[in-house]
Nucleic acid binder design. Sequence first.
DNA 1: TTTT
DNA 2: TTTT
Lengths: 141, 141, 141, 141
Amino acid sequence: MSGINKVILVGHLGKDPEVRHLDGGVTVASFPLATSETYNKEGKRIEQTEWHNIVLWRGLAEVASKYLQKGKLVYIEGKLRTRSFEDKERVKKYVTEVVAENFTLLGRKSDFENTPVAAATPKHENDYVEPEDNATGDLPF
Amino acid sequence: MSGINKVILVGHLGKDPEVRHLDGGVTVASFPLATSETYNKEGKRIEQTEWHNIVLWRGLAEVASKYLQKGKLVYIEGKLRTRSFEDKERVKKYVTEVVAENFTLLGRKSDFENTPVAAATPKHENDYVEPEDNATGDLPF
Amino acid sequence: MSGINKVILVGHLGKDPEVRHLDGGVTVASFPLATSETYNKEGKRIEQTEWHNIVLWRGLAEVASKYLQKGKLVYIEGKLRTRSFEDKERVKKYVTEVVAENFTLLGRKSDFENTPVAAATPKHENDYVEPEDNATGDLPF
Amino acid sequence: MSGINKVILVGHLGKDPEVRHLDGGVTVASFPLATSETYNKEGKRIEQTEWHNIVLWRGLAEVASKYLQKGKLVYIEGKLRTRSFEDKERVKKYVTEVVAENFTLLGRKSDFENTPVAAATPKHENDYVEPEDNATGDLPF
DNA sequence: TTTT
DNA sequence: TTTT
């Protein structure tokens, strides 16, 4: 039976997206994302940061490589995937990644000056009058 | 700036979906969904039910009309939309609906015997080997 | 059976929170929140804004009244609740609200200058060494 | 600045919860959870299963150990945490877990016959008349 | 009634 | 490795 596997993150990019083009022309982008949580312990303010490996595919990777940069605040929606790989010493290792299905840049107007708009994969199949889906794909402008 | 407007529900359909075909061939389906919360008040178990107006468009409406029925347990993801309309006495009224962007039937295998599969609008642009997106649209089988 | 009723919003406050103290000392705060979606229609960038009625109770209302103001960007998590009331002409009306269960201020450092920190109802029951829950309640600093 | 780190899963337990009592009396429970996704590839129905490591602390661990069993369908809400540990050969390894903050048993009424109710950490600070929070903690019945 |  |  089908299940649900959903991740919602708001955090800052630790690095610029790294873009690769696979055989067959598929684009993949990835970057680390930090989500910080601040809490109080015995009167002291403590910050705990969690790092996430974000992976984006195809059109979403292209949009990300254009509009996301180190330090930006971004909302990311995606799913968890754990995959195995062999390291240099041929030891089998596991890594858990967040495969993004959607993202939106957050932040101030000034943050957008060189990056006109940021919502990726917009969905608005919900207007009574709109005769067909937005055909422009991932670029929302 | 872009924002986020997301609703996640798990509940039972109060009625079969009601399907309409608008001018221009657009399909819309709608149904009430109940989400129940059980809690304890002064030692007594209390159940509180919230009713939601679910609306689905186009392909998602078609899939819903085939696979969702009164009583089924379903996961729904969508967004809030409040719209105004005039009632019979021409009084302006407002209603808040959940416009579904995705749904998945939950429940037992036996529940699926006449409805092979239930995940709508699957997204899996995340396999290294998969050369192109699933082209079958909303029908996941 | 239990269900799920969850709303996740990122948007800007349309007004300062309005705070009321009910009989019995319970505090309630409420404000309108705008979530904007930008999309492309026939080459033109279109913005669609949805307004949500946010309601907060007790400790969360107190924190909100201190740290949230008109214009601020905030992440809100809560649940949908539709309630009925009688208007001035004693006509029964319905309104759907988002009852907040959690919120986090988003935005730049400069936004926080007069509002030290913003995460409400922090949860971090997840450290191996931490012997008991944070006892300071809603104030995260 | 604060961020958001949220995971939402619906899936089946791969094993019964494993419960441990740490020094200091803290209870921890953990189990693997499978989320399956069914999609169509070249006309063939393909099921892809993702496994998640779920960890629960304190009261939530106690409730989980009572009501969750291998095979049960459960909704889980929590956050991602990657931690390092040393394996038997003293090699440093990393594992990503979902630290549950909330869970709800899903499924048929018959599934609950020996486990009356399943919503953990209920929140309903939202009734106008309710003078104080549910004081019974994690046990919702 | 917010924001970009 | 981000941010406040």
